[in-house]
């Protein structure tokens, strides 16, 4: 039997539930990424002997990891029970893994920043800084795993590309923040991260949309994705061409900071329309089934095939 062109549905009602996360989670994706990237940048700057750059990156990271738990707890249905997250560790739950990554990264960042600002215990500072950097990278990408581990088609089917996009925006925004805060003479590393990360996220999103095909349609319902591409592209160009001049570095940095925010927001927002339309859920599954049945029939018909 030939399947109908439009998949059947029950009065057009969604098959899966829409994500119930509020704006705080979309904002956290940004603050967590910025913090994670800044932890990496702080460790790199310290090795370079650029202590001012390292301190400002540490403080940026500290701001990020301080705001993040507040956002996450605010979004809970029962905020006073947030500590229940700390009673288990489950690799099947990226949210559980992420809770521990954020706790660890936040703790080490706090120690490193405190030692640095107070000018005490430089070895403890350096150790904590490296530990924070080691956790900063997964802090930037686990949120992509969190989205991919759902039934929402636009997230689930982008499990490979989403973490790369998130890594890109994390490094880009951390680099951009550092460019804005520091003298251009000290910002070569930050510029490379800002421009490279911004371009990587633009390319990553493009590849992701290509591979998602029809499932990527929710990305074009709202202007966030387009705005992110324009801002990231413009920001990267400004950074590469004029980043050695303070004014242009600030402009390029601001564009990339905004581009990263829009990028993560567009990915966060795409989940709702993707979950709401039953066709996005049903069509690929139906296709998979027909494909499977087709294979089996072909095998049965083939001489000497499995019967």
């Amino acid at each position: 039997m030939v399947p109908p062109a439009t998949p059947a549905s029950y009065y057009g009602r969604p098959v899966i539930k829409r994500p119930v996360w509020k704006w705080e989670i979309g904002a956290y994706f940004y603050t967590g990424g910025l913090a994670g990237g800044s932890m990496l940048l702080a460790a790199a700057a310290r090795r370079q002997g650029r202590d001012t750059v390292a301190r400002r990156a540490l403080l940026t990271a500290l701001a990020g990891v301080s705001v993040s738990p507040v956002l996450l707890i605010r979004d809970l249905g029962m905020p006073r029970r947030f500590y229940n997250m700390l009673r288990v560790f489950k690799v099947t739950s990226p949210m559980s893994v992420g809770t521990w990554i954020l706790s660890g990264a936040g703790g080490f960042t706090g120690i490193a920043a405190a030692c640095d600002v107070l000018g005490i215990m430089p070895r403890a500072r350096d150790g904590a800084e490296v530990a924070a950097a080691a956790l900063g990278a997964p802090l930037a990408t686990y949120t992509a795993a969190l989205l991919a581990d759902t039934s929402v088609p636009v997230w689930r089917d982008a499990a490979v590309e989403l973490p790369l996009v998130f890594a890109g925006t994390a490094l880009a925004t951390a680099g951009a923040a550092s460019m804005v805060l520091n003298d251009p003479a000290d910002s070569a590393t930050a510029r490379a991260l800002a421009a490279g990360g911004a371009l990587a996220s633009v390319v990553g999103v493009q590849v992701m949309e290509q591979r998602l095909g029809d499932l990527a349609a929710p990305y074009h319902e709202e202007p966030w994705g387009l705005a992110a591409k324009v801002l990231n592209g413009a920001g990267a160009a400004l950074t590469m061409l004029g980043g050695r001049r303070r004014a242009l570095a600030v402009a390029g940095g601001a564009a990339i900071l905004a581009g990263g925010a829009f990028e993560r927001w567009s990915i966060f927002k795409a989940g709702v329309p993707s979950a709401s339309d039953p066709d996005y859920t049903v069509a690929p599954q139906r296709e998979r089934l027909e494909h499977f049945v087709g294979h089996r029939q072909a095998e049965e018909l083939a001489p000497g095939g499995v019967s």
Partner: peptide, 28 residues
């Protein structure tokens, strides 16, 4: 899909570390 999910997230995290290492060399 957990294996793919964690491999991708871990791979992206390592890529980020490598990118920072490269950028570090640029800004020494």
């Amino acid at each position: 899909g957990l294996k793919t999910i964690w491999t991708s997230a871990g791979g992206a995290a390592l890529t980020a570390v490598a990118a920072v290492a490269l950028a570090y060399l640029r800004g020494r």
